[in-house]
Design a protein around this nucleic acid. Structure first.
Length: 365
DNA sequence: CTAGGGTTAG
């Protein structure tokens, strides 16, 4: 029955998946929901949503899980309206709405900035008793935060029974994203005092908050904490955040030092350095770094272009400007960082005791 | 019962 499951993993392209699909049809396996659901998911992962939909539409009575997978598929591809539509279809067809449906539809409604539908979903969540589910609550909290309803987000958060690092991360980043970095940091301090250990994801937000408030002391303690907890290695995105953080806290040289010591520079680390220069009005350095990026054959993304074009404009450097213009900004797609930082972090010789003492007291801002 | 939540573009 589930013998064919490993076959899905071996399908590396659309062609082989289509072959597997054909095989499943012939052998009759597609009559079961399991194979169909897996097929829907696999097609979506390969970007063929149409095929996903075809499998779904030809299945006589999709279960809640299959609905959910289809919604998740649309979500991946940013078809938010379609996700919400599917949710309404579920209600219309009186399909059972399983708990895993809610995170998808909530994310979709924040994607289209529809607070109204979000509140309606909230109501249904409470009615069906899913409001005790940490994951669903975190999703809800996220949509309120994202749509600027910080009070609602906070209220939900305060009423949550169990708070793990993920939901703390959600409330903290909500504050930061809404321009209230200090309160975000204050919440983060509460989290620490409750004994919750920060992971690199929340530290990403904290670095952002630090960039906003511009405290070099906090920047150093974040950096120190990251080194002690080995967050620097293997994480190009995190290093990029630190680069920008330092540059916003008045230490462009620290930013440069991190950047220069990266063994492998990803799009995001180059971009971070370029926008750091740009923000510090070192326009020539920004352009030079961009040229260095081109030499290293690292692909720029839309954010890279935004920064370097800004610098070009300020330099009135139209030669670089036209060079930069050659890139098709629309075609950049998802901005995945691939650069990995594996060197031991002693390079910076930050005194970790000093950093940690800051950590345990209050956050200097 | 599956899995579903927090990241980031300056």
């Amino acid at each position: 029955m589930t013998l064919y499951m490993p076959l899905f993993r071996s399908c590396s392209n659309l062609r082989s998946l289509t072959q597997l699909h054909a095989h499943l049809v012939v052998s009759g396996f597609l009559k079961g929901p399991l194979a169909s659901t897996k097929l829907i998911e696999s097609y979506a992962q390969m970007g063929s949503l149409k095929s996903s939909r075809l499998v779904f539409d030809t299945f006589p009575s999709p279960d809640s899980f299959m609905w959910g997978v289809l919604m998740k598929s649309y979500l991946w591809n940013h078809f938010f309206e379609e996700v919400v539509l599917l949710y309404h279809n579920m209600i219309y067809h009186q399909a059972h709405i399983g708990s895993f449906v809610y995170p998808s539809v909530l994310r979709a409604s924040s994607g289209i900035c529809d607070l109204g539908i979000g509140r309606k979903i909230h109501g249904r969540i409470v009615k069906s008793g899913f409001d005790a589910d940490t994951v669903i609550e975190t999703s809800l909290l996220g949509i309120y935060g994202e749509l600027g309803c910080l009070d609602d987000a906070r209220k939900l958060f305060d009423e949550m029974g169990e708070r793990d690092v993920v939901c703390w991360s959600s409330i903290v980043s909500s504050y930061i994203e809404n321009g209230r970095a200090r309160e975000g940091l204050e919440m983060f301090r509460c989290m620490l005092s409750e004994g919750i250990k920060p992971d690199w994801v929340i530290m990403l937000s904290i670095a952002e908050a630090c960039a906003n408030v511009g405290s070099l002391m906090l920047a150093k303690s974040i950096h120190g904490h990251a080194i002690v907890n080995e967050m620097m290695s293997d994480n190009g995105n995190f290093n990029s955040s630190l680069i920008f953080m330092y540059s916003q806290c008045g230490s462009l040289s620290s930013a440069e030092r991190i950047f220069l010591n990266l063994p492998d520079r990803s799009t995001s680390s180059w971009t971070s350095m370029i926008s750091s220069y740009n923000q510090n009005e070192c326009f020539q350095e920004a352009v030079d770094t961009f040229l260095g990026m081109q030499e290293s054959k690292v692909e720029p993304n839309a954010v890279t272009m935004l920064s370097v074009l800004g610098s070009c404009a300020r330099l009135e450097n139209f030669q670089s400007f036209t060079q930069a213009q050659r890139f098709d900004v629309e075609s950049f797609g998802p901005m995945y960082g691939t650069g990995m930082f594996s060197e031991n972090s002693n390079v910076y010789e930050l005194q970790s005791e000093a950093s940690n003492s800051i950590w345990n007291k209050s956050i200097p801002v």
